[in-house]
């Protein structure tokens, strides 16, 4: 056998895509590990060892960015999964206008994050914003939302949850649809109350959907940038800075090496938190590729 026939699935099919992916994604990603060890002006890179990382962890506001990132990701993904599940249960219970309500809940997912951010910045204005005026009308003095350093990060998280919960709801609705009604009937015959049915049947059986929602929103939360930039730009002060905004600020300031070090820290953070989850996820036969299905929108 000298002349091997060519496969009907030639590798050149992969080539153009591979070239784009490797040059514009993989090469920069790998290069970032090197550049994060340098003082760099895009033309010349001077090796300075771990100096960038040392600086990163010395500056309190940079460390705060790291901590904020974690808080933000945990708060948003936690809230999205809890609220998403509750909304999904509500929206599959056969209430009026179910289809319409699903659309309404989902629509913000598709809208420009920047636009949402600007609109909420106005709505959350401490004195003239509609939210605080509404609260005042019922006798509550609303907080300063985005301009209170203690609250800014959580206010942004709130907007993010508002915008992203529709996606979680949608995934949960699909997850609920996959549960066979037999389980509910069996539980009912066993005399379980509605509350027990929720905890003993629904929650365990939508677990794959939960894994998907949590993974997606964690990744989204850790990478989050647009919404923060559109509302607070990391302020007041550095109160709502996260890694992604730190990276941008250092880049603007021309500290390319430091900015890249921030990027590497973000990779590692995502790797450490999310990889074990997706691994467990594929073990449990949830299609990771499909978890991925929502990534572009969540990001």
């Amino acid at each position: 056998m000298t002349t091997r026939r060519r496969s009907p699935y030639p590798y050149w099919f992969v080539l153009p895509a591979a070239v784009v992916f490797v040059t514009l994604f993989l090469v920069p990603t790998v290069a970032s590990f090197w550049f994060s060890l340098t003082r760099w002006d895009l033309f010349e890179a001077e090796f300075i060892g771990l100096e960038n990382y040392r600086q990163f962890f010395r500056e309190p506001f940079l460390v705060q960015g790291l901590v904020n990132t974690l808080i933000y990701a945990v708060v948003t993904s936690g809230a999205k999964s809890v609220l998403g599940l509750l909304l999904a249960v509500l929206l599959t219970s056969g209430i009026w206008f179910q289809g319409f309500l699903r659309s309404v809940v989902f629509f913000p997912v598709l809208v420009s994050t920047i636009g949402i951010g600007i609109a909420f910045a106005a709505l959350m204005h401490p004195t003239r914003g509609a939210i605080n005026l509404a609260l005042a009308a019922i006798g509550i003095e609303g907080p300063a939302w985005l301009s209170d350093p203690a609250l800014a990060l959580y206010s942004v998280a709130l907007i993010d949850i508002w915008k992203g919960v529709g996606l979680a709801t949608l995934i949960y609705i699909a997850g609920l649809a996959a549960i066979s009604p037999d389980y509910y009937e069996a539980a009912r015959i066993d005399g379980a109350t509605a509350w027990q049915r929720f905890w003993r049947v629904t929650v365990p059986l939508v677990r794959p959907a939960t894994v998907t929602v949590v993974t997606l929103s964690l990744i989204g939360g850790l990478r989050s940038f647009d919404i923060i930039w559109a509302t607070t730009r990391g302020g007041p002060g550095f109160a709502s800075d996260v890694l992604a905004s730190v990276i941008y600020k250092q880049y603007q300031a021309g500290f390319y090496g430091l900015s890249t070090a921030g990027n590497v820290i973000l990779f590692l953070l995502i790797g450490v938190i999310v990889l074990p989850m997706t691994w467990g996820c594929s073990k449990r036969e949830v299609d990771v590729g499909a978890c991925a299905a929502m990534a572009p929108v969540a990001a």
């Binding site: 040059t23 514009l24 994604f25 090469v27 920069p28 990603t29 290069a31 970032s32 550049f35 760099w40 895009l42 990744i219 990478r223 992604a244 990276i247 941008y248 880049y251 390319y256 900015s259 890249t260 990027n263 590497v264 973000l266 990779f267 995502i270 790797g271 999310v274 990889l275 997706t278 990534a295």
Partner: peptide, 12 residues
């Protein structure tokens, strides 16, 4: 999952 490395991408 991994966010792009911004500055190195600009460099490329």
């Amino acid at each position: 999952m991994v966010p792009p490395a911004v500055v190195p991408t600009i460099w490329v």
